[in-house]
Simulated scan of single mutants.
Amino acid sequence: MRGERSWRRGDRARADRQLAQAAALAPGWDRVWRRIARLRLGMGEPDAARAAFATFAALNPAWAAIEHADPYYRPLSDTALQCSSTP
């Protein structure tokens, strides 16, 4: 995902734009929302990560339940399994 590369290069503004673009281009693709959630956590944005994870969970509840058990997602509360669509 381009947003991940931009973030690693230190270009937060570009990463934000690219994450929004990915969400707009593939709003029903669970993998996009999972990656947005993980990257937003890595960017120190738990609220945005929570919203992205919620959309991921709405699209693929079984996979989201497995992912939610991953210690990486500890910063997210159980409300992360509610639906939202903010990249």
Rank of each mutant, 00 (worst) to 15 (best):
L41S: 03
L25M: 12
L39Y: 03
V32D: 01
A48D: 05
R12F: 05
I36L: 07
G10N: 12
L39Q: 01
W7Q: 13
F56L: 05
D47E: 14
G44F: 01
D30L: 12
D47Y: 10
L39D: 01
Q18D: 14
L39T: 01
P27D: 14
A64K: 11
R8G: 03
A20E: 09
R40D: 01
R34N: 04
A15M: 09
A13I: 08
P46T: 01
S6L: 15
P27T: 13
R38D: 08
W7H: 14
R34Q: 14
A24C: 07
W33A: 02
E4W: 13
R50M: 02
D11T: 06
A48C: 03
L19S: 04
G44H: 03
D47C: 09
A15T: 09
G28Y: 04
R12M: 05
R50S: 00
A37Q: 01
G44A: 04
D30T: 14
R31M: 11
R14Q: 13
D16E: 11
G10L: 09
R38I: 11
R34M: 07
P27W: 10
R14Y: 08
R17K: 05
A26S: 12
A58Y: 04
R38N: 13
R5L: 10
Q21M: 11
F53Y: 05
A22I: 12
R34W: 13
G3E: 14
M43A: 15
L59A: 03
N60W: 14
E45R: 08
F53N: 02
D16Y: 09
A13N: 07
A24N: 08
W29T: 06
Q18T: 14
L25V: 12
A52R: 02
R40C: 03
A49W: 02
V32P: 03
Q21S: 11
W63C: 11
D30E: 15
A54V: 01
D30R: 13
